[in-house]
Each structure stands twice: as C-alpha cells, then as structure tokens.
C-alpha cells in the first residue's frame, strides 16, 4: 500500500479517536462540575488542560466553559475536537480511494455539519455537541468495521486508533481525579472511558482507586484499557510486517509497545497504583517512540521537498 495512504489512514484513525475521547472526557468533566458543587472547578480545569497537553496560560480561565472552549472549539489549538475532526477529514480526503464510500460519506457529512453543530453548541449546552461527536465517531467505527477490507489499510487505521487510545487513556489516568476527589473522582475517570458500567459488572463492588486503575490499565476484555489497546496495536504491527521473524522481534515499534505492555502486565495492582504517574509517563514516551519508528519505517517521508535546476 502506498506509504502516503498508509500514513493518512493511520492519522485518520488517530484523529477520530482523539476527537471521540476528548468529547467523552469533556462531557464527563463538564457535568461532573454541575453535579458536584464541591469540586474545585479551577484546579480540575487546570489539571485537565495540563494532561491534554494544553497548559492554560495565566490569562486563560479554567472554569468549565473556558476548558470546553479550549479543548472542543478552539480552532487555533490543533488538539481540539474541531481541529481533530478537520484533520480527520483532510486525511480521509487524501486517502479517498482507500476508504470505503460509506466511510468517506460519514467523514464528509460530519465535516459538512461541523460548523452548524459548533454554532448550535453556543457554549451553553455542549452536551448535545459531545453526544453528536461521539455518535459520528461511533458510526464511522461501525462503518469501517463493516465495509473495510482487512488489508494493510485497515491495519494502519486500527493501529492509529489503538495508539491514540493508549495515549488518551494514559492522559486521563494522569489527570488523577482520584487524588483530589477520592471515590467520586475514580467514578468520573471510569465514566470518561465509558468504563463505569463494565467496571461494576466486573468487580461488583464500589469503586476504589486500586481496582479502578487496575481495570483501566490491565483489563483484558475492556476495549479501552491500556492493555487491550496496546495488544491491538501490537497485533496490527505484527500483521503489517510480513517478515516478522521466527525468533525475537526486529521491529522497533513492536519492541517499544511490547516492553511497555509487559511492564504493566506483570505489575501487581499495588505497585501499579504506587507509581502510576511514573509508569504512565514512561508508557507515553514509549508510544511516542513507537509512532516515530512506524513513521520512519512505513511512511518514508520523501526527503525531496523541491527541485532546482
């Protein structure tokens, strides 16, 4: 498959996941503040901006509306939902012949409708917007599931999605809602990942920090756990590489991910919670190394930028 197309699909996967997860997190954050008036709005807002990679400037507000504005609607911030959706559209357009018509129509219709939805959200009632974003992303995921061949294109799409999911879940855990809010904070964290109900069914007891983080990091069945997403990314990489050897792993990206996964996998829940921030930071570094290695190996950015006579 063309390197440029593979790259576009990889980023399509990443941007859609980013938009969806951001919507999910913001939706919970925004309503947490309404439901629980004891929450320190400013501190939580700042923490959220911080882990999402957009530290608030001193003059920025960190009340719920400002945070929403910054992470959802800010067209100048590349990580915002609107920018992620635009970037997803750009990538889909550049890989138009590699995605199915149904997927393209979904991405395109989302892109077409985006300005109207942003306007309707108007800052006051962002829930409808978040819901719409989550729905559009879910439709796209469903369409890709049901209409895309499981060829390399699919694998790069899922690879991008999985890596982004690892990154977003790690960021969310780094926000450490649990530290300041105790049990309510862990519930929030789980709900940001749509994991609350799964958690309850699995543990059948009230939420505590240890089991919540164990669930989000290590659960083997929940699709947004770090473990699950890392395994998905690893699987894509090994299928993409037709020459993967009989002994050992010679693909750097797979090594990064595999090592990071093993470190989490073979930790006890207690150890995990004791040094969660350090482990998450390490994991994010490895994911970023893996991304660079994938790009270098498969996307072969053409060195040639201009021709001179």
């Amino acid at each position: 498959m063309l390197s440029r197309i593979a790259e576009s699909l990889y980023w399509l996967g990443r941007y859609v996941e980013r938009a969806e997860d951001t919507a999910r997190i913001l939706d919970v954050h925004f309503h947490l503040l309404l439901e629980d008036r004891w929450v320190d709005e400013t501190a939580t807002g700042r923490a959220l901006l911080q882990v999402m990679g957009r530290p608030a400037a001193p003059q920025d507000g960190s009340d719920a509306l400002s945070v929403t504005q910054a992470l959802a609607f800010d067209t100048a911030y590349a990580g915002s939902i609107v920018c992620s959706l635009s970037a997803a559209w750009d990538n889909a357009r550049g890989a138009r012949e590699a995605v199915s018509t149904e997927m393209w129509e979904c991405v395109n219709a989302t892109h077409e409708a985006l300005p109207r939805l942003v306007e309707d959200a108007g800052g006051q009632m962002p829930h409808a917007f978040f819901r719409w974003v989550k729905e559009r992303c879910a439709i796209l995921a469903g369409l890709s599931e049901s209409t895309m061949s499981r060829d390399d294109g699919w694998k790069f799409l899922v690879l991008g999605r999985s890596l982004e999911r690892v990154d977003m879940t790690a960021r969310l855990l780094s926000a450490r809602y649990g530290d300041s809010l105790g049990q309510a904070g862990w519930v929030t964290t789980l709900r940001c990942c749509s994991a609350y109900e799964s958690y309850l069914r699995t543990y059948q007891r009230a939420v505590d920090g240890s089991s919540a983080s164990e669930f989000l990091v290590l659960d083997r069945l929940f699709p947004r756990s770090l473990y699950f997403s890392l395994r998905a990314a690893e699987a894509c990489l090994s299928e993409i590489d037709p020459r993967s050897g009989r002994a050992g792993v010679d693909d750097a990206a797979r090594r990064y991910l595999g090592q990071a996964r093993a470190q989490l996998e073979f930790s006890s829940a207690g150890d995990l919670l004791a040094d969660l921030p350090g482990r998450l930071a390490h994991l994010q570094d490895r994911c970023s190394d893996a991304g660079a290695s994938i790009s270098e190996r498969y996307f072969r950015p053409a060195a040639i930028v201009e021709w001179s006579a």
Partner: peptide
C-alpha cells in the same frame, strides 16, 4: 488502482516506482 501524487513516485534508472509500506 493506486491514486498517486508526484511525491509518491520515484524514477530510478528509467524505471518508475511508487513508495509503499513494503
């Protein structure tokens, strides 16, 4: 068939190739 842009192609010794993941 593949839809390529100029940057996806490279000519070497009179043969044209496209850059793919493999």
């Amino acid at each position: 068939v593949a839809l390529v842009e100029g940057r996806d192609l490279v000519c070497r010794q009179g043969v044209v190739y496209m850059r793919t993941t493999s």
